[in-house]
Amino acid sequence: MTPPSKAVVIRRAILDELAAIGGTHNHDALAVVLKGKGHPVSRDEVADQMCWLADHGMMAVELLGVFVVGEITMRGRDIADGSVTFEGISPFKSAI
């Protein structure tokens, strides 16, 4: 289980990255990208946080084989661009 203080940062980093690349990515590729940008995350953590974001309407997720594929929603884009804040997601842009 991801500590709550780490989860809020991972969630924001996922939304920021999806917004920056155009909206869709899988958990494996996102984990690699986030690690490369200094976020110490596992693939399981990324998949779990993508599901949390989907449960709260910030992204849609789909299981394709062994991959969790996520697409950012308009609500997720609003958070990524700073128009809206949401409890459980860092209000500060990630270091990407």
Rank of each mutant, 00 (worst) to 15 (best):
M1Q: 13
P4S: 11
P4W: 12
K6D: 07
K6S: 11
A7G: 03
A7I: 06
V8Q: 08
V8Y: 00
V9G: 03
I10A: 11
R11N: 02
R12F: 05
R12S: 09
I14N: 05
L15R: 04
L15K: 02
L15Y: 09
L15P: 04
D16E: 01
D16H: 04
D16Q: 01
D16F: 01
E17L: 06
E17P: 12
L18T: 00
L18S: 02
L18K: 00
A19L: 04
A20E: 12
I21Q: 08
I21P: 05
G22H: 00
G22D: 07
G22S: 12
G23T: 04
G23R: 08
T24E: 14
H25V: 15
H25E: 14
H27N: 13
H27F: 00
H27Y: 01
A29Q: 10
L30E: 04
L30M: 02
L30F: 01
A31G: 12
A31H: 02
A31W: 00
V32G: 12
V33F: 01
K35T: 04
G36M: 00
K37A: 07
G38T: 00
P40T: 05
V41A: 11
S42G: 10
S42K: 05
R43K: 14
R43M: 07
R43E: 14
R43A: 14
V46F: 01
A47F: 02
A47L: 11
D48K: 13
D48G: 13
M50Y: 08
M50F: 09
C51H: 15
C51I: 14
W52R: 08
W52Q: 07
A54D: 02
A54G: 09
A54C: 03
D55V: 01
D55L: 11
D55M: 13
H56E: 12
H56P: 12
G57P: 09
A60M: 15
V61N: 04
E62N: 13
L63T: 15
L63W: 05
L64F: 10
L64C: 12
G65N: 05
G65K: 07
G65R: 03
G65A: 02
V66T: 05
F67I: 14
V68H: 04
V68M: 11
V68Q: 12
V68G: 08
V69A: 07
V69E: 13
V69W: 08
E71F: 14
T73L: 10
M74A: 14
G76E: 00
G76M: 07
G76Y: 06
G76W: 08
R77P: 11
R77N: 09
R77F: 13
I79M: 10
I79A: 04
I79S: 03
D81Y: 05
D81R: 11
G82Q: 06
G82S: 01
S83D: 12
V84Q: 08
V84P: 06
T85A: 09
T85M: 06
F86V: 09
E87I: 10
E87T: 10
I89W: 03
I89H: 00
S90M: 08
S90H: 02
F92V: 14
F92S: 13
K93D: 09
A95I: 03
I96S: 06
I96V: 12
I96N: 09
